[in-house]
Simulated assay, not measured.
Amino acid sequence: MLLEVRDLHVEFRTRDGVAKAVNGVTYGVDEGETLAVLGESGSGKSVTAQAVMGILDTPPGRITGGEVMFQGRDLLKLKEEERRRIRGAEMAMIFQDALSALNPVITVGDQLAEMFTVHRGLSRKDARAKAVELMDRVRIPAARERVRQYPHQFSGGMRQRIMIAMAIALEPALIIADEPTTALDVTVQAQVMELLAELQREYRMGLILITHDLGVVADVADRIAVMYAGRIVESAPVHDIYKAPAHPYTRGLLDSIPRLDHKGRELYAIKGLPPNLTRIPPGCPFHPRCPLARDVCTTDDPPLYEVSGTRGSACHFWRECLDG
């Protein structure tokens, strides 16, 4: 296994109390595999990724338990200097907002070239040549001229391609893409996802794709992990999830996708709101919004039941959900 996250716990100390953002998350991704991590905003998807990358804001964030095994090493036990050498070279992250992630006062060429001067010791001239190659690789037109431009001179889709170029620069074994198609129109979304899939096949990278959009991952993911209130509530191969979800929350997400054959019908929405992470309800955290909830759901926190050898569901009544 390329990456294994085991029973990870992350909390934030706030004025309102301790927010338990990640509560025992366990998942893994192998070489050449794509794991899609799904869930509403605030479910813990990005915080888990930041903990894996070692870029969690501390304070107020704090990892309180678990392991992050990457190529046989527990990253949580490494010194910061060792983590810094791994970031970029062995694992990289594509951030949600490329305009905020890129330095606005440094040309994109210099930002790409820095990867090679810092991690590979290349000269400024050779690093600039590598930057042009990368921009060509992610299909940015007129790369030799545009390498001197600043982030604000690129469109949203082109900036995201720059972020992808930075992520693949040193050919890492793992890339984490955090909402890489947010704020992009549908056509550009498809182009970006196609580019990511192509690069993954070429470099045999493991890919963790963080998103709230089930439609984005249908054609690219191998496995899906669905998160709610900082927990994995369902994990399964992608086709099993779409064919028959085994958790009411996953079913609600699928039913919320607009469909051409439902023209004229009211779009389904999951009732209620995600819980306040400083006051997660007892029992199953989804029970206040769940159509299958019963008395046991309000008192007993369900484990991740084994539905089959390749999937699990944190629902006491997963069989009923699976049967529709």
Rank of each mutant, 00 (worst) to 15 (best):
T298I: 07
Y228V: 04
E145P: 02
E179K: 06
D136W: 05
P282K: 12
L260S: 14
W318L: 13
L170N: 09
L260T: 14
L304V: 12
R159P: 01
A129Y: 01
G121Y: 07
T14F: 15
F116M: 03
S308V: 12
V307K: 05
R294Q: 05
G283V: 09
Y27K: 05
N103I: 02
R6F: 01
I232G: 01
L260K: 12
E4V: 04
L196S: 06
R201L: 08
G252T: 09
Q189K: 14
T58K: 13
H9F: 13
G72N: 10
S46E: 00
T107Q: 04
A143H: 01
P302Y: 12
L277Y: 11
D97A: 03
F116T: 00
D110A: 14
R73F: 04
P282I: 08
L273E: 15
C284L: 15
T299V: 14
L56R: 13
L277H: 12
D185S: 11
R13P: 01
R85N: 15
H239F: 11
E80V: 07
A269Y: 10
S235W: 06
G54N: 04
A173R: 14
L76K: 08
G65S: 14
L214C: 06
R265P: 02
R159Y: 01
N103E: 05
A229V: 07
R311W: 08
P288N: 12
G32W: 10
L292Q: 04
R311P: 02
Y268E: 12
P274Q: 07
E171D: 14
S256M: 14
A92Y: 04
L122T: 05
I241G: 07
I224N: 11
D219L: 00
K79W: 01
Q111I: 07
R120P: 03
T64V: 09
R85H: 15
V52M: 11
E4G: 04
P274K: 10
V25L: 06
R161H: 01
R6I: 10
